[in-house]
Nucleic acid binder design. Structure first.
Lengths: 180, 180
DNA sequence: CTTTACATGTAACTCGTTACATGATTAA
DNA sequence: TTAATCATGTAACGAGTTACATGTAAAG
């Protein structure tokens, strides 16, 4: 039930609407967990039923009304209990690696192009991550405890992106060696 | 439909039973893609229906009979077409990072222990990967084309594991600094 | 007037997990 | 005789994707 707990984590400090949650899963929270707005609305309905979040209707001027969700006391307790559980290794699935296992003379150019594309996407993500680190996490040692955890999660995303970049270069070198 | 194509990839050279496929998804193929035996049997039923694989009953002495699956011609063509498609970035989901975003004085010891556990699991995987590289992929330049692709997929797994190790050390250093 | 951002959902489907279910053979 | 390995599945559920569906308001 990690999505439920990711949503509750997003609600620790501020209450948010489904739409705002979807935005934040597209942005910073999405570095660690992705979810579509459909998933979020469904999960919010379940969280409301369990009384882990509370709904509140907010009228807005110049915009449609929204439903704002806040973490309840029991939600906060449930989140704490969940954090204390064992975490499970996310089985990494990358269909590009399966495609690579089918490498042959016909598809080598296509696969090399795919790796180049992957490299560029990764570069862009990395640039964004580092901008956030510079702007909001300049001195990790002095961060308050919780933000220090968020910093480490961000660092995980960064180190992973750096690794991906390194692998792309290695792969492109070996593949272009094959063409020559 | 990556699972279907991962299964077909496993069947490129040899025909296999569902049980044998499940074994190979636990082992080497599982470095790139994981699947339970239930998923595999369900997918094999669908693949058979589409005529992308052919079933064959094999009687064995001293063991239960098995159903062996082989890639059909149309399956082979479908696999080739799929490899030429765009690949999609697997959204990496790691609930440990969500837990870390909830870091506080109560759970810092637990989370540090979880990271240590992650570190040890990663070390073991890395050791296994490198054993396989040494045994089967000593000189990547001279590998035939397809095996060169498999080598690169393995390298991706290795570089990712090395990155994970590096992050664990960084995280443990910052967390133990917090306790002191 | 058209597009973008705001705002909330439903329905149908596939993918992945957990639990259940059965039965043979082999090694301790 | 008990556990492990071989061998194949079903049922139910939860997670994730895709398509559909509706409507307001601001900005160009």
């Amino acid at each position: 039930m990690a999505l439920a707990h990711a949503i509750m984590t997003a609600l620790i400090d501020d209450e948010m609407s489904g739409y705002e949650l979807a935005r934040s899963f597209d942005g910073s929270l999405g570095f660690f967990w992705q979810a579509s707005h459909q998933q979020i609305y469904r999960e919010l309905a379940r969280l409301t039923e369990r009384r882990w979040v509370r709904r509140r209707l907010v009228s807005q001027k110049g915009r449609p009304d929204k439903i704002s969700y806040a973490l309840s006391h029991s939600g906060r307790r449930a989140l704490h209990r969940w954090v204390a559980e064992e975490s499970r290794q996310a089985p990494s699935k990358d269909d590009l690696l399966i495609r690579l296992c089918n490498l042959d003379a016909d598809n080598v150019l296509h696969l090399a192009a795919e790796i180049k594309r992957r490299r560029e996407q990764t570069m862009q993500r990395l640039y964004l991550y580092e901008k956030i680190i510079r702007a909001h996490y300049p001195d990790p040692q002095r961060l308050p405890t919780r933000r220090r955890g968020v910093y480490l999660a961000l660092r995980a995303a960064i180190v992973q992106a750096e690794q991906a970049l390194q692998w792309c270069d290695e792969a492109l070198a070996l593949l272009s060696g094959a063409e020559a």
